[in-house]
Design a protein around this nucleic acid. Structure first.
Lengths: 208, 208
DNA sequence: AATTCCGGAGAACAGTTGTTAACTGCATGG
DNA sequence: CCATGCAGTTAACAACTGTTCTCCGGAATT
């Protein structure tokens, strides 16, 4: 099935990835709406015009970055929310997993948090789209849980979105604490855990 | 106490406000990190150099905008969260109030949501600072409620931050639906209400 | 082996940016 | 009434931007 692509397309994808990586790096200290295409090509060491061989504009590149950052995260989300063990265990696992993911891919997370409400409409739309898909995933997993018996479909989706937003908030908190001490990060993990716990408690008593 | 300032300082504050207003308008379709000072002065109809009489940089202007957008909101927050009537009544009142505030000041809210994780550090810091103060306000009001008896201080602050974040999320949702139909906005209000309700339920059963 | 394809380079374009310096006119305080 | 202060102007600066067109070299195709 997998066709080893010629050295031509290989080179193309290589510079394309270099452009994406360079852009992601530059976006740590600015927003996408101020990212110039020359800036990116300069960072890669390539002519400005080469940019057009890969992206129509920086906004287009941004949409690709959204895909790169969130596209492969769906399985991760599903297994995390999957109702297998205790609620508290699940929460602890989720917080731990978020902390690891942020530490491993800080630039991607920062990009998403920044551009979710950023100044470039297509990118905003792409992020909203991915987050909505996350919410659908979460909803599907929540529906399997016996706790969700008797719930309205709308309320289940509401809760799913609440969880997704919470995960992003948590990620953003860890992001700000990347340079901080171990104790500080532990404190943040504790707060994030308690937030999730409180929401889960609300969930259990929703139908009272 | 109030000293009517001379026609000199009056004119100065007038153009200063014009700069702020023009910037806020331009920021509806871009991020602060891409806002140029010439762009702003051009929109006002004033020489580029005049900008320096009022702000050191666009980042400086941004910090002022944060103050303008959030500075006067503290009393509003306190009275909204104040434990006077039923929890459900309080929530309905809060959602209604947020909807009105967003409809009345969309640009300010958009600016805050956008720059909260935006690319300009001083502005980010100013927003975080204001939000932290909101959380302190909310915590103080929550502490008055008998429901909060026996709560740890940390958990009370955790809940306060959760409420603050929730308000901003709700505001952002209303923002995206400004152009939408009345029914759509009503649907969003319903979802936001349910989110708050679920959190409040979690709060009531926190000490179980 | 000859030809086509195409990622990237190079140069040039009109227009933009932030910042500087020296100025002008008018409200202000003595 | 006159001298000072100061908001805003004008002009100029080097540096930067996105985009177009033309070209090159080497991989891909025939």
């Amino acid at each position: 099935m997998s066709h080893t692509l010629g050295i031509r397309q290989a080179q193309k994808q290589k510079t394309r990835q270099a452009l994406l990586d360079a852009a992601l790096g530059l976006l740590e200290e600015q927003s996408l709406s101020s990212l110039g295409l020359r800036e990116v090509t300069r960072a890669v060491g390539v002519a400005p015009t080469a940019f057009y061989r890969h992206f129509r504009s920086t906004a287009d590149l941004g949409v690709t970055l959204v895909e790169e950052a969130l596209g492969s995260l769906h399985p991760m989300i599903r297994t995390t929310v999957h109702p297998s063990d205790t609620s508290d265990e699940r929460i602890a696992r989720a917080v731990e997993l978020i902390a690891r993911h942020v530490a491993a891919n800080p630039a991607h997370i920062r990009f998403i948090a920044r551009e979710r409400h950023g100044g470039v409409q297509p990118v905003r739309a792409a992020i909203q789209d991915q987050l909505a898909r996350f919410a659908e995933d979460v909803k599907a997993e929540l529906a399997m849980d016996p706790v969700s018996a008797g719930w309205h479909d709308d309320d289940l989706l509401m809760l799913a979105h609440l969880y997704v937003d919470q995960m992003l908030m948590t990620a953003s908190l860890f992001l700000d604490a990347l340079e901080a001490t171990e104790e500080e990060r532990e404190r943040i993990a504790q707060i994030a855990t308690n937030r999730m716990r409180l929401i889960s408690i609300g969930r259990r008593h929703w139908l009272d």
